[in-house]
Write a protein that binds this DNA or RNA. Structure first.
Lengths: 214, 214
DNA sequence: TAATGTGAAGCCTTTCACAGCA
DNA sequence: TGCTGTGAAAGGCTTCACATTA
């Protein structure tokens, strides 16, 4: 394998591969070819091989990929070998939905703390998690929490960001469109529901061209 | 203006431009240069000019863009000149969060109906919307609803998709990772929270390269 | 034989530089 | 002079074809 700059698009696909492989592993499958994995996930087989090749050579010509080995490799690439912990800030409906979402654990990701500034909510439990006052954010590092999920209203987004950055998190997943991104050194991934919903009409007939549905 | 295939990436940016312009309009601004809009939104000025140029020439050399005119143009491109209606299926925490999200209206988008299969929820009101039985999905067309938002659990995703497609919707925003996309003719945009959260660790130091935070 | 890994081609997107207009 | 609109260059990603390996 030679050096290649790794396309961010390839990184974006790794979790999909991981999910597919975990499913296969759960079914007891031992190995799979790029073609079969491609059919399963809706990618092309050369895309899958190319993506893996950015990170090394994991397969066996003539046979395919050893599923367990590949899962391990992708976990390593994504830095999910150890369980990663995140804190959620803003326990409204969206925050609750994210807290109760069961789908993180298979990846080795856990939300282990929740914060809010509403005194009525502080102290309540959601599953195993007790909602804390946002003033406690500064203690994240000590608790081994490196990531933040921001589900606060727009007005509170910027100060929540600043608090998380001050607390030393390494990355933030934000549902708020209202932050001035860029000035921080931490990676911020933003999910903006309105942005995605609003461009649906564009793809309506008379524009029947299309693309990856992201 | 000459013919150009329009990059999907440019379409993806239009709602951001629209939001910025609406904010400016609200502040009473009349016109803006590509450079100032770029600074406001965190894009580059040539990117903005290029994006607009795919759709036509909206600006005035030496002056910039007339904000109201530009808003109208982007609305037209995104097919948001008339108010677009969507139905939400699955009124759990996430569904509630989306229903209560106030940010769609400025774009000319409205969620006007909500469906669930839980008898306890049917008949309840969320804001102005009364939750209906999913069996009522087939009547969407008559009510002028062209889009669907899917916030049901994984297991129910595929059948919800089929029902929405059968009801004649033109596009679907899905929060479920579990649909076999591709076989439908309708545009599907998928938001997968776990996928986005899970790749945060990758960007953690020792991989300090970076990119657009999407 | 069956499948991987990869250089090279092709395509799409972004950036640049500047002609042209108000 | 200041800013737009756009051809052309540069850069990045995907697809292809095939040499290579088990």
């Amino acid at each position: 394998m030679k050096y290649h700059k790794i396309p961010d698009e390839a990184v974006r696909r790794l979790p999909f591969y991981l999910r597919g492989l975990l499913t296969l592993s759960g079914r007891g499958c031992k190995s799979i070819s790029s073609r079969d994995l491609a059919d399963l996930l809706g990618f092309s087989h050369w895309q899958i091989r190319k993506d893996f090749s950015y990170f090394g050579s994991f397969g066996t010509p003539g046979t395919g990929y050893d599923i367990e080995k590949l899962i391990k490799q992708i976990r390593k690439i994504l830095k999910l070998e150890v369980v990663r912990k995140a804190a959620l800030v803003g326990v409204g409906n969206l925050g609750l939905a994210v807290l109760r979402y069961p789908g993180f654990q298979v990846y080795g990701f856990e939300i282990t703390a929740a914060f809010d500034n509403n005194p009525k909510k502080i102290g309540r439990k959601v599953g195993d998690i007790t909602i804390e006052n946002v003033s406690g954010l500064c203690g994240l590092k000590k608790r081994g929490i490196d990531f933040g999920v921001v589900t606060v209203p727009c007005e509170a987004a910027q100060q929540t960001f600043d608090a998380l950055v001050a607390a030393g998190v390494k990355g933030i997943l934000s549902f708020s469109p209202c932050q001035k991104t860029g000035r921080e050194k931490v990676k911020v991934i933003t999910i903006d529901i309105a942005m995605d919903l609003v461009r649906l009409p564009y793809y309506t007939p008379a524009n029947p061209k299309r693309s990856k549905s992201r």
